[in-house]
Design a protein around this nucleic acid. Structure first.
Lengths: 183, 183
DNA sequence: TGTACATCAGTGAACGCGCGTTCACTGATGTAC
DNA sequence: TGTACATCAGTGAACGCGCGTTCACTGATGTAC
């Protein structure tokens, strides 16, 4: 039930999200979250776990019905779009503030997210599946980060979708060219 | 002179760096920084600008004396190494908290940093120099981010250098394969 | 059907804390005569 | 060479603020007899 209220915040909250701020957004007193979570960290972990869940679902949905060779670019776009639509949540999910070593639910969801990209990426090079997975992950993560941190200039105020699509397609085709001989 | 003191903090400070914390690290009272900076934001901007300066210098030094085709991987490694050595500063430099539109020194240094990578990357494809630059930037930025946010598991506690070098080389060779026909 | 009780989400006041910022000040350094 | 004065980096106390967290509480809901 708190979860449901927090959904709203995910789209809104851009500042460093705290317990009190979240409680306020849900329309509840500052101490109410302690009914459901041990402390601030546990709350953030639950939030991040739930974020990963939606993240995985978004990528899976993007892949749905695509021909095999379209899966990787489609998932990459879903990755970036998720970051743009939920910048605060995305940053939280990948922040070192959260420890996937404590919260097992979070650990599972984060692993599932990585597996989702890795499976699609690994198809590009069966000889070095882990390597190509990390390379693809780095590219897509970096592009997402640069966009939400407003480092890719001139993009922030227009629709970035076409540019991002073009970059993603070019990257994937470069990877394929590089892996054709090796793989 | 405060700048000099802050150098020390760049390697140390991992938490959200604030004015008081910085002053403390420099060994100075909390109000002393106001002699030199208008407010917290101005201090962070100056810090980020100075960070970019060292960042550019590190990449230039890495390129020094390298054969042309080694420049891009060497600079990529310098990029990642800088992030690992100065995680807090690196995050600050690329955070949206800082506005390059207000502080012109920061704007210049950030542009210089981008230009440094872009020039080396653009050599890989003269037909689409801007595109290949953003792709290289995204990859290297993403890899750096994933490492400092401890997302690339098992790497944090051993020497990550060989793995990162391998990934960087593979990425560059993929890009070259993809650009051979197009460029 | 009605009363007694446990459960439990949420309240609101209070705490100690570190933050960014201000203010009047001190004390050292350099310059003018 | 010595005195008078301006400059200026730094001090330390104080402010208001929002934070995370605790605590005794209220009030609604569901269950037992």
């Amino acid at each position: 039930m708190i979860e449901a209220g927090l959904e709203t915040l995910r789209h809104a909250g851009l500042r460093g999200l705290g317990l009190r701020e979240l409680a306020r957004a849900v329309g509840v007193s500052a101490s109410a979250p302690y009914r459901h979570f041990a402390d601030r960290k546990a709350l953030l972990e639950a939030l991040a776990a739930s974020g990963f869940e939606r993240f995985v679902a978004a990528m899976a949905a993007a892949r749905e019905g695509m021909p095999l060779e379209e899966e990787l670019p489609a998932m990459a776009m879903a990755y970036i779009r998720f970051a743009i639509d939920n910048p605060a949540l995305f940053r939280l999910m990948f922040s070192a503030e959260i420890s996937p070593y404590r919260d097992t639910a979070l650990k599972q969801q984060a692993a599932a997210a990585y597996a989702t990209i890795a499976v699609a990426a690994a198809r590009e090079d069966k000889a070095e599946p882990a390597e190509v997975a990390v390379i693809c992950w780095s590219f897509v993560h970096g592009l997402a980060m640069l966009v939400i941190d407003e480092q890719i200039l001139g993009v922030a105020h227009t629709d970035p979708e076409p540019l991002l699509r073009k970059l993603t397609r070019s990257f994937v085709s470069d990877i394929r060219a590089g892996r054709r001989k090796t793989g």
